[in-house]
Simulated assay, not measured.
Amino acid sequence: MAESDGLRYTRMALNNGSGSIPALGFGTLIPDHVATRTATKAALEAGFRQLDASERYRNEVQVGEAMEEVFKAGEIKREDVFVATKLWNNNHRPERVKPAFEASLEKLRLDYVDLYLIHTPFAFQPGDEQDPRDSHGNMIYDEGVTLLDTWRALESLVDEGRCKAIGLSDVNLAQASEIFEAARIKPAIVHVESHPYLPEWDLLDYCSKNGIVMQAFAALGHSSKPNLLEDPVITAIARRVGKTPAQVLLGWAIQRGTALLTTSKTPSRIKENFEVSALPEEAVREISERITTRVRFNAVVETGVPGFIPRG
Protein backbone atom coordinates (compact mmCIF):
# COMPACT_ATOMS: atom_id res chain seq x y z
CA MET A 1 0.00 0.00 0.00
CA ALA A 2 1.07 3.54 -0.66
CA GLU A 3 2.11 5.55 2.33
CA SER A 4 -0.82 7.13 4.14
CA ASP A 5 -1.60 10.84 4.08
CA GLY A 6 -4.34 13.10 5.38
CA LEU A 7 -6.91 12.67 2.58
CA ARG A 8 -9.15 10.44 4.71
CA TYR A 9 -9.42 13.21 7.30
CA THR A 10 -10.56 15.87 4.82
CA ARG A 11 -13.38 18.07 6.10
CA MET A 12 -15.60 20.41 4.08
CA ALA A 13 -16.96 23.64 5.53
CA LEU A 14 -20.72 24.11 5.66
CA ASN A 15 -22.17 27.32 4.28
CA ASN A 16 -24.28 28.13 7.36
CA GLY A 17 -21.33 28.42 9.71
CA SER A 18 -22.26 25.33 11.74
CA GLY A 19 -18.92 23.65 11.18
CA SER A 20 -17.74 21.09 8.66
CA ILE A 21 -18.58 17.62 7.41
CA PRO A 22 -16.00 14.83 7.10
CA ALA A 23 -15.60 14.07 3.41
CA LEU A 24 -15.42 10.32 4.07
CA GLY A 25 -18.74 9.08 5.41
CA PHE A 26 -20.35 5.75 6.28
CA GLY A 27 -23.84 4.98 5.00
CA THR A 28 -26.13 2.84 7.16
CA LEU A 29 -28.42 1.44 4.46
CA ILE A 30 -28.08 -2.14 5.76
CA PRO A 31 -31.36 -4.12 5.84
CA ASP A 32 -30.28 -6.57 8.56
CA HIS A 33 -30.61 -4.99 12.00
CA VAL A 34 -27.86 -7.00 13.69
CA ALA A 35 -25.48 -6.19 10.83
CA THR A 36 -26.46 -2.50 11.04
CA ARG A 37 -25.37 -2.34 14.67
CA THR A 38 -22.09 -4.21 14.21
CA ALA A 39 -21.18 -2.35 11.00
CA THR A 40 -21.91 1.08 12.48
CA LYS A 41 -19.75 0.26 15.50
CA ALA A 42 -16.98 -1.08 13.24
CA ALA A 43 -17.12 2.07 11.09
CA LEU A 44 -16.63 4.34 14.08
CA GLU A 45 -13.82 2.17 15.42
CA ALA A 46 -12.15 2.18 11.98
CA GLY A 47 -12.08 5.98 11.97
CA PHE A 48 -15.24 7.08 10.19
CA ARG A 49 -16.64 10.26 11.74
CA GLN A 50 -19.65 10.81 9.51
CA LEU A 51 -22.74 8.57 9.66
CA ASP A 52 -25.67 8.79 7.27
CA ALA A 53 -29.03 7.41 8.39
CA SER A 54 -32.68 7.72 7.37
CA GLU A 55 -36.10 6.95 8.77
CA ARG A 56 -36.72 5.07 5.51
CA TYR A 57 -33.94 2.58 6.25
CA ARG A 58 -35.98 1.39 9.26
CA ASN A 59 -32.83 0.87 11.33
CA GLU A 60 -32.25 4.16 13.15
CA VAL A 61 -32.72 2.31 16.46
CA GLN A 62 -29.77 0.03 15.71
CA VAL A 63 -27.60 2.93 14.51
CA GLY A 64 -28.44 4.72 17.75
CA GLU A 65 -27.58 1.68 19.86
CA ALA A 66 -24.20 1.35 18.13
CA MET A 67 -23.38 5.02 18.65
CA GLU A 68 -24.43 4.90 22.29
CA GLU A 69 -22.21 1.87 22.93
CA VAL A 70 -19.21 3.54 21.30
CA PHE A 71 -19.75 6.87 23.07
CA LYS A 72 -20.12 5.16 26.45
CA ALA A 73 -16.75 3.45 25.91
CA GLY A 74 -15.28 6.94 26.09
CA GLU A 75 -12.72 7.08 23.29
CA ILE A 76 -15.08 8.72 20.80
CA LYS A 77 -17.34 11.59 21.85
CA ARG A 78 -20.71 12.55 20.35
CA GLU A 79 -19.30 15.90 19.21
CA ASP A 80 -16.61 14.05 17.23
CA VAL A 81 -19.20 12.40 14.96
CA PHE A 82 -21.22 14.15 12.25
CA VAL A 83 -24.63 12.45 12.16
CA ALA A 84 -27.16 12.91 9.37
CA THR A 85 -30.62 11.47 8.93
CA LYS A 86 -33.45 12.03 6.48
CA LEU A 87 -37.15 12.86 6.26
CA TRP A 88 -39.13 10.31 4.27
CA ASN A 89 -41.67 11.10 1.55
CA ASN A 90 -44.85 10.39 3.55
CA ASN A 91 -43.91 13.16 5.99
CA HIS A 92 -43.52 16.11 3.61
CA ARG A 93 -46.55 17.99 4.94
CA PRO A 94 -45.15 20.80 7.16
CA GLU A 95 -47.13 19.65 10.19
CA ARG A 96 -45.61 16.17 9.89
CA VAL A 97 -41.97 17.29 9.65
CA LYS A 98 -41.25 18.04 13.31
CA PRO A 99 -42.86 14.83 14.66
CA ALA A 100 -40.89 12.79 12.10
CA PHE A 101 -37.68 14.59 13.06
CA GLU A 102 -38.27 14.05 16.77
CA ALA A 103 -39.01 10.36 16.16
CA SER A 104 -35.66 10.03 14.38
CA LEU A 105 -33.85 11.77 17.24
CA GLU A 106 -35.44 9.40 19.74
CA LYS A 107 -34.50 6.32 17.74
CA LEU A 108 -30.94 7.58 17.27
CA ARG A 109 -30.72 8.40 21.01
CA LEU A 110 -29.48 11.89 20.22
CA ASP A 111 -30.29 15.41 21.40
CA TYR A 112 -29.51 16.87 17.97
CA VAL A 113 -28.36 15.89 14.50
CA ASP A 114 -25.70 17.66 12.48
CA LEU A 115 -27.69 17.38 9.25
CA TYR A 116 -31.30 16.68 8.30
CA LEU A 117 -32.09 15.97 4.65
CA ILE A 118 -35.28 15.76 2.63
CA HIS A 119 -34.75 12.23 1.36
CA THR A 120 -36.33 12.81 -2.05
CA PRO A 121 -38.19 15.73 -3.67
CA PHE A 122 -41.30 13.53 -4.05
CA ALA A 123 -44.17 13.87 -1.57
CA PHE A 124 -46.18 10.71 -0.96
CA GLN A 125 -49.66 10.48 0.54
CA PRO A 126 -49.28 11.54 4.19
CA GLY A 127 -49.74 8.83 6.79
CA ASP A 128 -47.96 5.95 8.46
CA GLU A 129 -47.43 3.94 5.27
CA GLN A 130 -43.99 4.63 3.80
CA ASP A 131 -44.97 3.25 0.38
CA PRO A 132 -48.64 4.21 -0.11
CA ARG A 133 -50.00 2.48 -3.22
CA ASP A 134 -53.37 2.26 -4.90
CA SER A 135 -55.19 -0.96 -5.81
CA HIS A 136 -53.11 -1.22 -9.00
CA GLY A 137 -49.82 -0.97 -7.13
CA ASN A 138 -49.12 2.60 -8.23
CA MET A 139 -47.51 5.04 -5.82
CA ILE A 140 -49.91 7.62 -4.36
CA TYR A 141 -48.36 11.08 -4.47
CA ASP A 142 -49.37 14.17 -2.47
CA GLU A 143 -50.10 17.08 -4.79
CA GLY A 144 -51.02 19.33 -1.87
CA VAL A 145 -47.48 20.17 -0.76
CA THR A 146 -44.44 21.58 -2.54
CA LEU A 147 -40.77 20.92 -1.92
CA LEU A 148 -40.44 24.52 -0.74
CA ASP A 149 -43.25 24.00 1.81
CA THR A 150 -41.30 21.10 3.27
CA TRP A 151 -38.07 23.09 3.17
CA ARG A 152 -39.63 25.90 5.22
CA ALA A 153 -40.49 23.35 7.91
CA LEU A 154 -36.86 22.17 7.97
CA GLU A 155 -35.72 25.78 8.38
CA SER A 156 -37.83 25.93 11.55
CA LEU A 157 -35.94 22.91 12.93
CA VAL A 158 -32.66 24.79 12.49
CA ASP A 159 -34.19 27.78 14.28
CA GLU A 160 -35.00 25.53 17.24
CA GLY A 161 -31.38 24.39 17.50
CA ARG A 162 -31.77 20.61 17.37
CA CYS A 163 -30.65 20.38 13.76
CA LYS A 164 -27.44 22.18 12.79
CA ALA A 165 -27.78 22.07 9.01
CA ILE A 166 -30.31 21.00 6.39
CA GLY A 167 -30.02 19.71 2.87
CA LEU A 168 -31.55 18.01 -0.15
CA SER A 169 -31.22 14.48 -1.46
CA ASP A 170 -31.93 12.86 -4.83
CA VAL A 171 -32.54 16.20 -6.56
CA ASN A 172 -31.51 17.47 -9.96
CA LEU A 173 -29.83 20.79 -10.70
CA ALA A 174 -33.13 22.59 -11.32
CA GLN A 175 -34.62 21.45 -8.01
CA ALA A 176 -31.47 22.30 -6.08
CA SER A 177 -31.24 25.79 -7.57
CA GLU A 178 -34.97 26.45 -7.01
CA ILE A 179 -34.67 25.75 -3.28
CA PHE A 180 -31.33 27.55 -2.98
CA GLU A 181 -32.75 30.73 -4.54
CA ALA A 182 -35.91 30.71 -2.39
CA ALA A 183 -34.45 29.48 0.90
CA ARG A 184 -33.95 31.60 3.99
CA ILE A 185 -31.52 28.96 5.26
CA LYS A 186 -29.60 27.64 2.27
CA PRO A 187 -29.05 23.92 1.63
CA ALA A 188 -25.71 22.96 3.16
CA ILE A 189 -25.56 19.57 1.44
CA VAL A 190 -26.90 18.13 -1.81
CA HIS A 191 -26.82 14.34 -1.53
CA VAL A 192 -27.00 12.46 -4.85
CA GLU A 193 -25.81 9.32 -6.57
CA SER A 194 -22.43 10.08 -8.10
CA HIS A 195 -19.38 8.11 -9.26
CA PRO A 196 -17.28 7.97 -12.46
CA TYR A 197 -20.26 6.55 -14.39
CA LEU A 198 -22.47 9.41 -13.12
CA PRO A 199 -20.11 12.30 -12.33
CA GLU A 200 -22.80 15.03 -12.16
CA TRP A 201 -20.28 17.69 -13.21
CA ASP A 202 -22.90 20.43 -13.72
CA LEU A 203 -24.42 19.88 -10.29
CA LEU A 204 -20.97 19.75 -8.69
CA ASP A 205 -20.06 23.03 -10.40
CA TYR A 206 -23.26 24.68 -9.15
CA CYS A 207 -22.67 23.42 -5.61
CA SER A 208 -19.05 24.57 -5.60
CA LYS A 209 -19.99 28.07 -6.77
CA ASN A 210 -22.66 28.39 -4.07
CA GLY A 211 -20.80 26.92 -1.11
CA ILE A 212 -22.87 23.72 -1.05
CA VAL A 213 -21.18 20.41 -0.31
CA MET A 214 -22.13 17.77 -2.87
CA GLN A 215 -22.21 14.35 -1.21
CA ALA A 216 -21.98 11.25 -3.40
CA PHE A 217 -23.78 8.05 -2.47
CA ALA A 218 -23.16 4.78 -4.32
CA ALA A 219 -19.59 6.03 -4.70
CA LEU A 220 -18.48 2.45 -5.46
CA GLY A 221 -21.44 1.65 -7.70
CA HIS A 222 -23.41 -0.32 -5.10
CA SER A 223 -22.22 -3.65 -6.55
CA SER A 224 -24.42 -3.05 -9.58
CA LYS A 225 -23.70 -3.86 -13.22
CA PRO A 226 -21.63 -2.63 -14.96
CA ASN A 227 -19.30 -3.08 -12.00
CA LEU A 228 -17.29 0.08 -11.31
CA LEU A 229 -14.77 -1.89 -9.25
CA GLU A 230 -13.94 -3.91 -12.37
CA ASP A 231 -13.66 -0.95 -14.76
CA PRO A 232 -10.35 -1.31 -16.64
CA VAL A 233 -9.33 2.30 -16.02
CA ILE A 234 -9.90 1.90 -12.28
CA THR A 235 -8.19 -1.48 -11.99
CA ALA A 236 -5.17 -0.30 -14.00
CA ILE A 237 -4.72 2.74 -11.75
CA ALA A 238 -5.17 0.55 -8.65
CA ARG A 239 -2.35 -1.74 -9.77
CA ARG A 240 -0.17 1.23 -10.66
CA VAL A 241 -0.53 3.04 -7.33
CA GLY A 242 -0.76 0.03 -5.02
CA LYS A 243 -4.34 0.56 -3.84
CA THR A 244 -7.58 -1.38 -4.13
CA PRO A 245 -10.12 -0.30 -6.79
CA ALA A 246 -12.41 0.88 -3.97
CA GLN A 247 -9.68 3.09 -2.52
CA VAL A 248 -9.04 4.55 -5.96
CA LEU A 249 -12.71 5.42 -6.42
CA LEU A 250 -13.01 6.96 -2.95
CA GLY A 251 -9.82 8.97 -3.40
CA TRP A 252 -11.07 10.29 -6.75
CA ALA A 253 -14.36 11.36 -5.18
CA ILE A 254 -12.68 13.39 -2.44
CA GLN A 255 -10.00 14.89 -4.69
CA ARG A 256 -12.56 16.16 -7.20
CA GLY A 257 -14.31 18.00 -4.40
CA THR A 258 -17.18 15.84 -3.17
CA ALA A 259 -17.98 14.27 0.16
CA LEU A 260 -19.01 10.63 -0.16
CA LEU A 261 -20.66 7.66 1.49
CA THR A 262 -19.53 4.07 1.44
CA THR A 263 -21.30 1.11 3.05
CA SER A 264 -20.21 -2.39 4.02
CA LYS A 265 -21.18 -5.03 6.57
CA THR A 266 -17.66 -6.53 6.66
CA PRO A 267 -15.24 -5.06 9.24
CA SER A 268 -12.16 -5.67 7.06
CA ARG A 269 -13.83 -3.95 4.09
CA ILE A 270 -14.97 -1.07 6.30
CA LYS A 271 -11.36 -0.62 7.45
CA GLU A 272 -10.10 -0.83 3.85
CA ASN A 273 -12.58 1.83 2.76
CA PHE A 274 -11.30 4.19 5.45
CA GLU A 275 -7.65 3.66 4.46
CA VAL A 276 -7.91 6.17 1.61
CA SER A 277 -4.92 8.22 0.51
CA ALA A 278 -4.29 10.74 -2.25
CA LEU A 279 -4.01 9.70 -5.88
CA PRO A 280 -1.54 11.29 -8.29
CA GLU A 281 -3.24 14.16 -10.10
CA GLU A 282 -2.82 12.40 -13.45
CA ALA A 283 -4.82 9.46 -12.10
CA VAL A 284 -7.64 11.79 -11.02
CA ARG A 285 -7.68 13.33 -14.52
CA GLU A 286 -7.57 9.91 -16.16
CA ILE A 287 -10.68 8.76 -14.29
CA SER A 288 -12.51 12.01 -15.05
CA GLU A 289 -11.61 12.07 -18.75
CA ARG A 290 -11.19 8.49 -19.92
CA ILE A 291 -14.25 6.87 -18.34
CA THR A 292 -17.18 7.67 -20.62
CA THR A 293 -19.71 5.03 -19.52
CA ARG A 294 -22.85 6.74 -18.20
CA VAL A 295 -25.11 4.74 -15.86
CA ARG A 296 -27.51 5.70 -13.07
CA PHE A 297 -27.93 2.75 -10.71
CA ASN A 298 -30.80 4.14 -8.61
CA ALA A 299 -34.01 5.37 -10.28
CA VAL A 300 -35.18 7.21 -7.14
CA VAL A 301 -34.85 10.56 -8.92
CA GLU A 302 -37.62 9.51 -11.33
CA THR A 303 -40.19 8.12 -8.90
CA GLY A 304 -39.17 8.85 -5.32
CA VAL A 305 -38.97 5.08 -4.75
CA PRO A 306 -35.37 4.23 -3.82
CA GLY A 307 -33.91 1.41 -5.83
CA PHE A 308 -31.52 0.22 -3.11
CA ILE A 309 -34.12 -0.19 -0.33
CA PRO A 310 -36.38 -3.26 -0.12
CA ARG A 311 -40.10 -2.38 -0.12
CA GLY A 312 -41.03 -4.78 2.65
Score class of each variant (00 low, 15 high):
L7K: 00
Y9F: 15
R11T: 00
N16V: 00
G17C: 02
S18L: 05
A23W: 01
F26L: 08
G27I: 04
K41R: 14
G47P: 07
S54V: 08
N59K: 14
E60R: 10
V70T: 05
F71K: 11
V83Y: 02
N89W: 05
P94S: 14
A103G: 14
L105Y: 06
L108H: 07
D111Q: 14
Y112N: 03
V113K: 04
L115V: 00
Y116M: 10
H119V: 03
F122Q: 08
Q125M: 14
P126F: 11
E129G: 01
D131Q: 08
R133F: 11
G137V: 07
M139Q: 11
M139W: 08
I140P: 04
I140V: 13
D142V: 09
L148Q: 13
W151F: 05
L154N: 06
C163Q: 03
A165R: 02
S169Q: 12
D170T: 13
S177M: 07
K186E: 07
E193T: 05
H195T: 02
P196Q: 06
L203H: 04
G211P: 02
G211T: 01
P232K: 13
A238R: 15
G242N: 12
V248M: 03
I254C: 05
Q255N: 02
A259F: 00
E286A: 09
S288G: 14
R290Y: 08
